[in-house]
Amino acid sequence: METLGPQIIFWAFAALMLGSAFIVVHGKNLVRSAFSLLATFFSAAVFYVMLGADFLAGVQLLVYVGGILTLLVFGVMLTNRIYNLNLETQTFQVLPGALVSLAVFVILTTVVVRTPWSQSALIEDGPTTPIIGRALMTEYVLPFEIASVLLLVALLGAAMLVRRRTDL
C-alpha cells in the first residue's frame, strides 16, 4: 500500500501532462492551447517534487506559470484585436509530422529502456534550496554571472523591438 500513493500520483500527472500537451500541439484554439500549457507546466512541477527537487518545482511554477505563460497569453490576446475572431489556426502536413515524431518517440523510448543507466544509491530527500544556492555562489558562479548578462540583453532586446520609435 505504501508505494501505491506515489504510483497513482505519477500516472495521474503523467496522463495530465501528456494529455494537455497533446491539446497544446493539436488544439484548434490558441487560448485553449495556452491554458492547456498551464496543466503541462503544473504536472512537470509535480514531477519535480516527486523527484525531490522542491526548489525547482517552485521556480517552475513562478517562472513558467507566472511569467512565460502570462507572456504567451498576452501574446495571443495582443496579436488578435478581436480575440474570438481569427484565432483559429490551420494545421498542415499533419501526417508526415505525426510519423516523424512517432518515429522519434519509438527510437527514444527504445534507447531509454535498453540503456543500463548507472544508477547510484538514492540521495536522501531534504530541502535543496541551500545546496543550489551554495552551488550558484561557488562552482557555478560564472554561469550565474553569464545568466545575468543574458537577462540584461533579453530585456534590452525585447524592449527595443516593441518600442514604436526607431530613432531613439
Partner: peptide, 23 residues
C-alpha cells in the same frame, strides 16, 4: 551547462540583431 548557456546567449542577442530594422 556552459556550452548551452553561452550558445543561447549568443543566439538570443543575434535574434534581436537580425530583427534590428523593426519597421
Amino acid at each position: 551547462l556552459m556550452i548551452y548557456l553561452a550558445l543561447e546567449t549568443v543566439s538570443v542577442a543575434s535574434y534581436v540583431m537580425v530583427g534590428y530594422l523593426k519597421t
